[in-house]
């Protein structure tokens, strides 16, 4: 009984750990995208003329 519960616990702990890593990557991507949007807005229409 112990071994079987331990195996399931480890399996899910590892998967959830990985999922947390994926979620934190996601968070970083969102932050980067937000910073980019801010920079685009700050740039203003004046600088649009230059590629």
């Amino acid at each position: 009984m112990t071994w079987y519960l331990a195996a399931y616990a480890v399996f899910w702990a590892v998967l959830f750990g990985y999922l947390l890593g994926v979620a934190s990557r996601q968070q970083r991507l969102v932050e980067r995208a937000e910073a980019l949007t801010r920079r685009l807005a700050e740039g203003g229409p004046g600088s649009e003329s230059r590629p």
Partner: peptide, 26 residues
């Protein structure tokens, strides 16, 4: 999900580089 993240990160890097260049030239 990981493929999407990697692809998005590449696109973001591209946009960031573009923006850097625009700000430098402005």
């Amino acid at each position: 999900q990981r493929v999407w993240q990697e692809r998005t990160a590449e696109n973001l890097a591209l946009l960031e580089a573009l923006l850097d260049r625009r700000e430098r030239s402005a």
